[in-house]
Write a protein that binds this DNA or RNA. Structure first.
Lengths: 377, 377
DNA sequence: TTGGGGGATGTTTACGTAAACATGTTTGGC
DNA sequence: GCCAAACATGTTTACGTAAACATCCCCCAA
């Protein structure tokens, strides 16, 4: 009825814009009532402004509102403006739940992770969130309380009902090794820092090459061998770095000192540094924080870096260049890892499941002042 | 028809369970077809298993499936098991979009932030995500490209259409000062690290008290005055710390040296440290990273810490205890800030808009080895 | 035996959106 | 001046879920 009235008006009195807009005002009051969240017939509370509200105010059908909202062609300029005005007046915002239901997509990526404060995770996640936002996707964090199989399994199981189109898994990988721990079938996923390359697409820093560069650098400086301060055995990255370290030494025919382990923290690096043998002249720490601890331990023991002992780290965190001395370390590009994850995941969402495989991001050695040529005693 | 058949069966032949389950098998094939994502009449692809699919397989109505899924009473045990079996067979997962649409809630909190790698943000966000998960909420990151007013305004505007029930804003606050930058009305919000306490509920570390403790500590050690290495002027936290530093000095009747500014990075702390005057004996750096840079600069200049110069930081990041020397610093509880944010936000969602105001989290000074009594020259 | 109460289950409807289809209106070519 | 095509707009329907209401059956008390 009303729609027709308006339409007739526009038809026959076209050009008299003020006439056309009059009915709009008449409806303002009624719509304002809705707007405040008044009770509706159903007895439930009307949560917010819907397309129907806008349509009523603008005197058009909700489909037309939809067309305007989505910028589709086929809406006359005067109608479009009327709808836009109604949207502004009511403060209309599209309802993403309804959109998701309609399209079967959430435009959201999930990130399953254990800790955010651990080494490069926050940078990776930041890059993921940024890259995802660029592509119009939101990023949802799915924290896993403790890195136990049960927890991870639980997170994976819940995955199916989470409002995400795909997930990026950033978890120490040995938890994924168990065949019992698997993502629900049909869930798009990309895994970071893992050897799950046979089951999922994996994006990772080239841990092995980075470690090789570090150890070779020390050998080239004339050190007879290199001690290694590794991360936790549960960590895939840690194991890869340790393996590469060992391999380089063996290939060079050097003795392979016993490995020492830390938990990635500077404190653990400090403790490990205190136990280094007196004849140790070169240390490769599995991350920069532990290297920092080693620097402190060596300092307390009166051993100068780099004159007496050379130290190399891994990660190249921002602070590394301000250590005493500035740390020679392996630079890894966390942001690039994040970006590639998002890219791979979006490809997967668009084109269906991707083949498993590993995509390695390059690393390079940054030489600063914590390494120097070896002077034989 | 089928539903009735089954019901009759159950009714009259009750007890013969095998009979009851037979029809289930008959339906398996048809439902499997759906499951794979075959075309449905509408021409669109059926995305996933819905309650209707489960209902058909179990031979009940979808409402009964809903009751089982939500653990409601009023479903006979045998029926419940039949439904559960069907769910398992089809791998049913509730559709969160539909749920959200139905309930008008998303069970999701948004976090608007500029950077994740900056000082304590990652720890705050981690705590937020964890706490939110405990309450059954997911956490969505809403990164803001650059901290410009336009970007923040854009993020705020989009807020209304994001799938979140409330937001936590972690952004240097001066951007919020402009009255033009405001969250859409009706959006539940909590702000971190800000002076927006008059417009929104705010949770923050007690910056002022932390800074006071740091400066007083240095004065009590006998230093005539304290130099300050501040963070960026745009940062609210930075300004609060600087103000407290100045106030303590003035109250003690000490000279107030010119302020130096960094950008929170160790590198900027290093540069600032190189410019410190020769008669400087005590430095209060606005964060630990800059303090690290100062330590390096002083070391290069041949000034010993703490013998010649005392240095205090702020944040108490994990590495601070491994600096050379281990850093005296103000400990702040990022995780507690995150937890309180979530709590305040959930309260708001449950009970309606909260009164503006500021909730301060305590800080305390951690005395290590970078501070020592002043020896007059 | 009967009628009513209550429990188990089915049916209808609404949430907000947008594709598909239907209707009505204008325009242009002959 | 008329018809068809192009265009603007309205109507129906489905997405998956769950509240509200309706129905059916059984059992028990009178």
């Amino acid at each position: 009825m009303f729609g027709n009235d308006r339409k007739c008006l526009r038809k026959h009195v076209c050009g008299i814009v003020t006439r056309v807009t009059r009915p709009v005002k008449e409806f303002t009051i009624e719509t304002q009532r809705l707007r405040g969240g008044s009770d509706v017939p159903g007895g439930r509370r009307k949560q917010r402004v819907s397309m129907a509200d806008v349509a009523k105010l603008a005197g058009v059908s909700s489909q037309t509102v939809s067309r305007v909202a989505n910028g589709q062609a086929g809406v006359v300029e005067s109608t479009r403006e009327q709808v836009l005005a109604a949207m502004r007046e009511l403060g209309y915002r599209p309802n993403s739940a309804a959109r998701s239901l309609r399209y079967g997509r959430f435009n959201t990526l999930g990130v399953i992770l254990f800790g955010l404060s651990s080494t490069g995770n926050s940078r990776t996640v930041e890059a993921i969130a940024t890259q995802a936002a660029t592509a119009g996707y939101a990023t949802t964090l799915i924290p896993v309380g403790a890195p136990t199989q049960d927890n991870v399994l639980g997170a994976f199981t819940r995955m199916g009902e989470l409002a995400v189109d795909g997930v990026i898994v950033i978890i120490e990988i040995h938890l994924l090794d168990a065949t019992s721990v698997a993502l629900p079938p049909g869930v798009h996923a990309v895994v970071v820092d893992s050897d799950a390359g046979e089951r999922y697409p994996v994006v990772d820093t080239d841990q092995a090459d980075g470690a090789r560069q570090a150890v070779r650098h020390l050998l080239e400086l004339g050190h007879p061998t290199v001690w290694h301060l590794a991360g936790p055995a549960e960590s895939y990255a840690s194991e890869r770095r340790a393996l590469a370290w060992r391999t380089v030494l063996e290939e060079a025919g050097r003795p392979v000192p016993a490995i020492t382990r830390g938990d990635w923290s500077a404190e653990s690096g400090y403790r490990a540094g205190l136990t280094l043998p007196a004849d140790c002249t070169a240390v490769f720490a599995a991350n920069d924080q532990m290297a920092l601890g080693v620097l402190r331990a060596l300092h307390e023991r009166g051993r100068r870096v780099p004159e007496d002992v050379s130290v190399v780290g891994f990660d190249d965190i921002a602070d590394a260049s301000s250590y005493l001395p500035p740390l020679t370390t392996v630079h890894q590009d966390f942001a690039e890892v994040g970006r590639r994850c998002v890219q791979a995941l979006l490809d997967q969402i668009a084109s269906g499941p991707a083949a498993p495989g590993t995509d390695l991001v390059r690393t390079h050695l940054v030489i600063r002042n914590s390494t120097a040529p070896h002077h034989s005693v």
